[in-house]
Design a protein around this nucleic acid. Structure first.
Lengths: 214, 214
DNA sequence: CCTACCGATCGGTAGG
DNA sequence: CCTACCGATCGGTAGG
């Protein structure tokens, strides 16, 4: 879960090197969460390193102790978020074997993971392109893992989509469009719950896909 | 179509006042199109007024002659784009009375309007929030007009959605999610054409909505 | 007296 | 783990 762009972990407990602080990982998390909040609210370019430090109650130099630069913060936020999403979906896959139920479980897992990660989701959608190409590519590879899981579940639920059907991509991306767009209109405590919307989106996709394939 | 934030139009042809340049509107359009290209590619904050001026082959001061500030450029790009979308959809509505065909015509109109407005679409999705709240509100009002048209067409095609059904909003927003997400995966000249995808998205929504409502 | 346009530079702030 | 700064560049505006 922790960043690949920060300083390397200690590899030995002995020697003259200063030991890593006991609360190293906790501090990193605090900084990452504060950054995510500010990036989501003001955008990556407008949220300054000074604002982030202020929000954490630390100096800007301390932030730079944990993260080499601003890009590293953005990268870690999105990578941790995508890893969470993948883990949630894979966990849901372990307990739901059936095609239709499995897809519903995937959509539910995704929407549920978004519940406490609204800032991270916005950042994934709106700010990823601020990163240099190689780092973007690493994150997009994780997005592709997620897409693959959903495409496989769709193929299992609607067999006509498998075997190289040109419908598979547009139908899969339609599902992602629906689910990833939800944050723009969905309100907690409204007439439609997260579980309700998972059922709605899954039904739209499954009935529509069967109709298209048949 | 032209900006409400630029200098006012001449109200008289006589008098000592220097007349507006013959190519005033053309120059405005050139600046707006170059800005859109740069905002879409680099983002609003990273595309500088100098880059915009350079791309147009004019001085930065000239850009400021046509637009009071950078925000006014962004506002006009999105407003003109949304006005185009609304006009396209309303035009499609005039020639398609039937419920199901009408919705398909709406989706086709939107996807077709996106064909030559990829930059503007990206900007609408990703950069609108860079504007001050009152200007955002003016643009969101236009988005609501578009949503209203689609919601009305959906109600007509699937009567069970009308009469205050809690399904209407999630189903309408699901359609917008699909259509507004297309730019992230759709490639011109691929296995699925714009018309194909309009049919797919419309079918997903209609069959799914009927199944949910029934 | 407004509009069209230039070269030069302003005050302020970014990431580091 | 901080204060003090930097080189670069931003959006916007001056006089003419």
């Amino acid at each position: 879960m922790r960043g690949g762009l920060g300083p390397p972990r200690e590899t030995t407990e002995s020697g003259m090197a200063r030991p890593r602080a006991d609360d190293y990982d906790e501090k990193r998390k605090v900084i990452l969460k504060a950054s995510a909040e500010l990036f989501a609210e003001h955008g990556f370019d407008r949220a300054s390193m000074n604002q982030i430090a202020l929000a954490c109650g630390v100096s800007k130099a301390l932030v730079y102790h944990y993260y080499a630069n601003k890009d590293a913060l953005l990268f870690d936020i999105i990578r941790d978020h995508l890893d969470d999403l993948i883990a949630s979906v894979e966990e849901a896959g372990e307990t739901h074997a059936d095609g239709e139920e499995r897809l519903l479980a995937f959509v539910n897992a995704l929407l549920d993971a978004y519940r406490d990660a609204n800032a991270e989701h916005k950042i994934q959608i709106n700010e990823m392109k601020r990163l240099p190409e190689p780092q973007q590519e690493e994150l997009k590879a994780r997005e592709r893992v997620l897409v693959k899981h959903f495409a496989a579940a769709l193929c299992q639920a609607v067999p006509a989509l498998s075997g190289g059907s040109p419908l598979l991509m547009p139908v899969t991306m339609s599902l992602f469009g629906m689910v990833n767009w939800h944050y723009l209109w969905f309100r907690e405590g409204g007439a439609v719950s997260r579980e309700d919307y998972a059922r709605i989106a899954t039904r739209l996709i499954l009935d529509g896909a069967r109709s298209l394939a048949g």
